[in-house]
Write a protein that binds this DNA or RNA. Structure first.
Length: 111
DNA sequence: GGTATGACTGTAT
DNA sequence: GATACAGCCATAC
């Protein structure tokens, strides 16, 4: 079967649509794609493609708003500084106003 | 096709 | 609050 609409592709689409100054969680994306417990796939998919242009992977954090992947970027501060530059307040690698920055694709995209 | 792994999440202790 | 364990799904070997 064709796979042009891979899980990866869907992840890219969603992540690309994350507005500036906002962030979302792996679980939210997974749930939006129908993989209620496939958060790991989202993270894995991102890790395999965060190098690609147009994928603001730094806007994707875990359910607690913690920058779990910051260490995987070129620099451990890249992710935090990037988010801070967009207006997101971060402390201890964790988004302080997480609930305010949280961008839920199921609601925002309102499919 | 089975085993191992992963940027996760939720429940249990 | 922190640690431990289990669940879930796709990719890689």
């Amino acid at each position: 079967m064709k796979k042009e609409n891979d899980f990866f592709n869907d992840v890219y689409e969603v992540v690309r649509q994350i507005p500036k100054g906002r962030a979302t969680s792996y679980g939210a994306i997974a749930a939006y794609l129908g993989k209620k417990r496939g958060a790991r796939l989202v993270g894995w998919a991102m890790g395999s493609s965060y190098h690609q242009q147009g994928i603001p992977a730094h806007r994707v954090v875990n359910s607690q708003g913690i920058l779990t992947a910051k260490m995987l970027f070129d620099t451990p501060t890249f992710m935090q500084e990037k988010l801070e530059s967009e207006g997101i307040l971060i402390k201890n690698d964790k988004i302080q106003n997480w609930k305010e920055c949280f961008w839920d694709p199921e609601k925002e995209l309102a499919l």
